[in-house]
Design a protein around this nucleic acid. Structure first.
Lengths: 142, 142
DNA sequence: TTCCTTGCAAAACTTTTGCATTAAA
DNA sequence: TTTAATGCAAAAGTTTTGCAAGGAA
């Protein structure tokens, strides 16, 4: 639909990643992937929609949500439930944890290497660990 | 409003805890506190509303939400963001973590003693740790 | 009386869905 | 051409809010 602004290299690498996941690289999906996957970041659906429209892209809210769910389902991004207000989409799918600045709402990545677990409780019988979400809440030092 | 069913001891201990927190123990607040604080559990606002009404209590949705927010603000309960769908209110305010059964949605308490951290990343300058939320996601073993 | 709490309904938000239209292979 | 994706608007679900009425001090 829109063929301007973002560098060809970014777009083509996003296209490549979508194809690799078996996702048809439509214009909207490539735009969303380019925006999100260019670096490690945490964005809400609304932020993504606003950014794309600011760039002049033609995208609907429904497509943003559909696309984010699709990407998350294919492991291209990770959906976070950090505060109850909305979902955050994390472009970093490597194992890692988060600082959550409760004042500003900001999320900061914490590498796995910074937190080592001495022991972990065994999962209940018949269950296995699918993932570990660690959120370290921060407040301004008093 | 309603003076039936729950044991007097439960109600009076709930009343005591509310008074201790400087919360005026109205009928609705005592009912909600009695329901939630009788044991360690994780309930949604809607579940609490349904339980109270099933018991014959006269309570509105607005009051349930107002009350839960009030209790959480006073540290009487803890609000959890585990899945994006809704808030869960945890009657256990002692430090602890959670298993999250992704199949059933169930939450299971994990005592702090079951998880020891070998090291923790230092909070950014000017910040301090306000809390640690650890969610261990579980799926059925394949 | 005065202040706080409640209930109801409506509003505010985030996210999903139905369906006609459009784009991709 | 045939299938899948998009856009729009409406719906769905959770949580908040405004305001009149009710209850406690």
């Amino acid at each position: 639909m829109d063929t301007s602004t973002p560098p060809a290299t970014l777009e083509s690498s996003a296209e490549q990643r979508l194809s690799d996941c078996g996702i048809r690289p439509t214009a909207q999906r490539v735009r969303i992937a380019s925006l999100l996957l260019c670096r490690n970041q945490h964005l809400s659906a609304e932020q993504i929609l606003a950014s794309l429209r600011a760039e002049g892209a033609r995208v609907s809210k429904a497509t943003v949500y559909n696309t984010l769910n699709l990407f998350a389902g294919r492991g291209l991004i990770r959906q976070l439930s950090v505060d109850g207000t909305r979902a955050w989409f994390d472009s970093n799918v490597e194992a890692h944890y988060h600082f959550h600045d409760m004042t500003s709402g900001a999320l900061i990545d914490v590498p796995v290497s910074a937190v080592e677990f001495r022991n972990m409780p065994p999962p209940p019988p018949g269950m296995e660990v699918a993932g570990i979400d660690l959120v370290i809440r921060l407040r301004r030092k008093s």
